[in-house]
Design a protein around this nucleic acid. Structure first.
Lengths: 111, 111
DNA sequence: CCAATATATGAATAACTGTTCATATATTGA
DNA sequence: TCAATATATGAACAGTTATTCATATATTGG
């Protein structure tokens, strides 16, 4: 037992730090509330109050999750008077989301 | 405050149960050990012992994480004598992985 | 400036998660 | 069948996380 892999093709595996960042990114997607927020924002920007209403959750819970999404750079706030509208930060997010969705639909299809 | 979103385009948002499944999927990607296992398996199948050695972690910890990956359908075992080789289950996994990687590299690039 | 509204934040708590340790199961060779 | 090897599993523990509650901050209209 000397080789870890077939030694034919060697991909350059990201360093451990990058993989850590990657897991941190997916962690943000890995929560029901946050993924529901992301799904809601795919339709366009929404304010905190309406997100809370739409998801039938407390305003505080939504704010806390928005902060996590904001820190991760997935979501961006826009202030308009007292109201703050949140929107998705870039198109990558939708692609990751759709990729995940495709996977579970694929799995469900073959089950 | 009556409308949650601009009412121009309406995407059909997945039901809450699907979004739950989606978050569960991303949760599996959202752990350093598991993403490192996935990254390792992108190069081809590997046995538990070598994964543990490669990641410099205990065999038990790897086995536990492999069980989670297996339950999620991301990884598939193949027995060969005493040894069990694991490999990625399908190509979707690599796509999700690459999408995430592209995102953090994009973010790092603009930072 | 004051009251009302919208959002953010800190502390507390309950639930969950990942690792370790010990042990069980499974396979092979002798 | 027995010892050795490879992997899996259960319990326990420490660390993390999401929600709730109370309260703070920020903005606007009067």
């Amino acid at each position: 037992m000397e080789n870890h892999t077939s030694d034919l093709i060697k991909r350059n595996t990201p360093d451990i730090e990058t993989l850590y960042d990657l897991s941190e990114l997916f962690k943000v997607f890995g929560d029901t509330t946050r993924i529901r927020i992301i799904a809601a924002l795919l339709d366009g920007e929404m304010c905190v109050y309406h997100l809370a209403e739409y998801l039938e959750m407390g305003q505080s819970a939504i704010s806390h999750q928005l902060r996590i999404l904001r820190s991760a750079g997935l979501v961006r706030p826009r202030r308009e008077g007292k109201t703050i509208f949140y929107s998705l930060d870039d198109e990558h997010i939708e692609m990751i989301y759709n990729m995940g969705l495709a996977h579970i639909r694929h799995k469900k299809g073959e089950a």
